[in-house]
Structures are given as structure tokens and as C-alpha cells.
Design a protein around this nucleic acid. Structure first.
Lengths: 142, 142
DNA sequence: TCAACAGTTTAGAATAGTTATAATGTAGTT
DNA sequence: AACTACATTATAACTATTCTAAACTGTTGA
């Protein structure tokens, strides 16, 4: 459980002013045990519910993008109709539950190291990430 | 190089009427050696350029979705601002070139078999796909 | 402490991609 | 040829996201 002061420092050290709104967003995003996967809408709703306060949607967008640019958040593509963000910014793999649309982080040792045998000339590999789609194990899968 | 007749059969056998527009779209999509990765917009532009004929955007959407539902096309998530489709409908991996935003199919043997060691109870794995992001191999990467 | 400035927030307008609608058109069957 | 169900189309509607411009607020330095 991080303190406000720590968020202030964190923001300041990355050149972002520690404003009321940003601190609240930090609270919601980073005061958690588990990784948080969310869409901007989820986040905005979460803020107004948890903190009983409304932050303009535009500000939520701005802040999330600022945090992404600073490397505090990572954007994830699962389906194209919505952007997901992840508080876990390391390169890592995901399970995606097609029944619930829920995204679940993999631990490093859930998946054996991936061996890429092909190279693209002049290009270097920046990331290798796996997406495992799962659904309920019975006849009527989606 | 498939003939029109083959497309007619293909459509008919999957319960889609072989209309002018659908046949033209088939031509553009499936008369290729290589896999085709595209957005709806790419496709619409491609049609009007190649065939010198305009198909209503709504029809392109309808048709692409119909083809997807029938399993002739696959939707791919790389970045969330646009939907990409792929004429290669098998489970397969991709390189994504961050410099050019180009998507490249992997051959089956470009990547060693992926060993998933974790299970989610009550869920079965539908697909395991890898996305390898690459960028030009010099100091000013994006 | 306070003025000044640059960075922030905000509501609302604007945009882009996509989907819905409803009228018109057409393939296939009889 | 006529009928019917399915398709196409233009346009309107919708949704997620970005832009804009004015008001506001941390921060800095006098």
C-alpha cells in the first residue's frame, strides 16, 4: 500500500506535476496487490465509485497516456473494439477468457521459453508475447 | 489463381449468395499467393483501385463479417485503433514491424512449439498465438 | 508571500471507425 | 414472369477517442 507521498515523488521524478487528479488515478491504479487490467471506461467508473468523485474523461485519457509514455502502464491488444491497459509493464504473457472477456497475467514460468528461429533482416526483436485464449470446457463454446 | 466458378461454389456451399459484390471481394481477397492482412479501409480502397469499381463501405463490412463468421477470414488484434483481418485462418504467429506497421505471418517452424504449463480450471485452451514485435536495429527505435 | 508562467484540467465539439436502419434491388425458385 | 428471401446501399446513428480553447493550479523565483 503506497502512500500519497510516494506517488508525489514518483510523478515529480518523471516530470509530471502531482495534481489532485493524477494522485487519485495513481491510488486507483497502483494501490493493489494484483495487476489491474482495465479500459479507460472501467477506470473512469472505478474512480467515480471508489473515490466518489468524478474526473473528466478527457483527463483520464490524458493521464493514462502520460503514464503509458512514462512506462507506468502498458497497452494491450486483445480485441479491437476497446483498448486495454495493464499495470504490469514487463514483457509477459496473458490468458484471455473468452467467456468473461477477462485478461489474466501469466507468471514467467507458466510458459516455457519461446524459441524464435527466424530473423527479419535489419530488424531486432523488441518483444515476444503469447496470448492464450481459453473458454469454458463444454460443448457450447462461443 | 482461382476461377470465379470456384468462388461461386464456395459461397453457395456456405449458404451465401454469390452476388456480384461478394465475388469481387473474393477476387481481391483470395486471388493471391501470399496471405493478405488488411483493414476494412485497405480492402475498400483496394477494390476501387484494382477493380475500378466502388462497393459501398457498408457492404464491405457486411461481407467481411460474413466471411469471418464462415471461417474464411480471421480477425487479428495488433493495435486497438483499427481491426485487422487475415486471409490465413489457421492458428499461427505473427511478426509485427513497428516501423512500418506491417504484419508478417510466421511459418509453423519459425517458432518452437509452445509449452503452456498452467491450466485454468474448467477452461480449455482454444488458441496459443505469439506476437513478435520487431523494429529497425539501430539507436533510434521508436 | 505572491505574481507570473507553464503545465493541467475540463466540457464540449470534432473525428474516425463501425454498426444500424430502412428503402431499394436482385438471385434463385416456382 | 412473378415471388420471396436475402443483399446492397446511402445515410443516420453510435461509440471510443482525440482535439480545442478557456479556465485553473502547481511551481518557481523575486
Amino acid at each position: 500500500m503506497l502512500k500519497n507521498v510516494e506517488f508525489v515523488d514518483k510523478l515529480r521524478s518523471s516530470g509530471l506535476r502531482p495534481t489532485k487528479q493524477r494522485l487519485k488515478i495513481c491510488e486507483v491504479l497502483f494501490n493493489r496487490d494484483k495487476t489491474f487490467h482495465f479500459t479507460i471506461n472501467d477506470l473512469a467508473k472505478n474512480i467515480s465509485e471508489k473515490l466518489n468523485e468524478k474526473i473528466s474523461l478527457a483527463t483520464v485519457y490524458n493521464t493514462v497516456h502520460a503514464f503509458k509514455a512514462k512506462g507506468y502502464l502498458k497497452e494491450i491488444s486483445i480485441n479491437s473494439d476497446r483498448s486495454y491497459f495493464d499495470t504490469n509493464t514487463k514483457i509477459h504473457h496473458h490468458f484471455f477468457d473468452e467467456d468473461t472477456n477477462e485478461l489474466i497475467d501469466c507468471d514467467d514460468d507458466d510458459i516455457e521459453k519461446i524459441n524464435v528461429k527466424k530473423n527479419i533482416t535489419g530488424k531486432k526483436i523488441n518483444s515476444v508475447e503469447v496470448l492464450i485464449k481459453v473458454a469454458s470446457d463444454n460443448q457450447n463454446q462461443k
